[in-house]
């Protein structure tokens, strides 16, 4: 059985080894970018079917962002929406025979988690300034500074392991069952894998949204503590 923790280069581009997951990633990126360009080229007030589907998608993403953060979705829509769509299509690319989803290898989830880690810093500094972002680490009191710093790394790491583990285990189980009984038996597992892929894409987007919101909220100037009357 091939180890799921290793990757093997598909071919060499000069001195650079090209992995299969990189090729699949670029294919997904090409599909997403060209699809978005085609859909948004001719926008009409009375939408065609394709435009209606795209509007439904954007509207759903906006509504989810509004529900999770309570803020205007415009500044997060591009980042979170792209993250969700990319992971969803990457997870579902296992349906194409011979394609291993790039999220089932170590590098892609690690890269996505690193992007989320950097975007938390970016959005935190953009909305609260450097001082506000750094002050967020000292909440609720300065004793928590080491723990908060540790947490900011471990939560990105746990996003990485969660996405990798879920998708990889799905692919792995299908490979094992397929090696035992290849005809029709793996199909229920593949359906389950579709559900897991969708849920994981949703979870990844929502969690990155939650973490960004917490960094933004902590960076805001603190109001004077209110005395609750009850």
């Amino acid at each position: 059985m091939e180890s799921p923790l290793e990757t093997f280069p598909l071919f060499m581009l000069g001195p650079v080894p090209i992995m299969a997951s990189v090729v699949v990633t670029w294919a997904i990126m090409a599909v997403l970018v060209s699809g978005a360009a085609l859909l948004s080229r001719r926008l009409t007030p009375v939408p065609s079917t394709a435009q209606a589907i795209a509007e439904l998608l954007v509207g759903t993403v906006d509504q989810q962002i509004r529900d999770v953060t309570g803020a205007a979705p415009a500044s997060y829509r591009a980042f979170v929406g792209t993250l969700f769509l990319f992971i969803l299509i990457a997870n579902w690319s296992s349906l194409i025979p011979g394609v291993t989803p790039p999220t089932a290898t170590l590098e892609t989830p690690a890269a996505l988690a690193a992007i989320v880690f950097l975007s938390i810093i970016y959005f935190g500094i953009r909305d609260g300034g450097v001082g506000g972002f750094l002050r967020g680490f000292a909440l609720p009191n300065p004793v928590m500074i080491p723990l908060n710093m540790l947490e900011s790394v471990t939560r990105s790491f746990s996003m990485f392991v969660r996405l990798f583990g879920n998708v990889m285990s799905g692919v792995f189980v299908i490979a094992i069952v397929g090696s035992l009984a290849a005809l029709l038996v793996p199909i229920p597992l593949m359906v389950l894998d579709l559900l897991t892929g969708a849920v994981q894409a949703y979870i990844f987007a929502v969690l990155s949204m939650v973490f960004i919101t917490s960094a933004v909220e902590k960076g805001k100037p603190q109001p004077a503590p209110e005395i609750e009357e009850s």
């Binding site: 392991v161 969660r162 285990s169 994981q200 949703y202 979870i203 929502v206």
Partner: peptide, 19 residues
């Protein structure tokens, strides 16, 4: 929605063991 996020968080511990 909160349930799904929470379940994913809980499930991570099992995924750690798998890894």
């Amino acid at each position: 929605r909160t349930l799904f996020v929470g379940l994913a968080m809980i499930e991570t511990t099992a995924i750690y063991c798998l890894v």
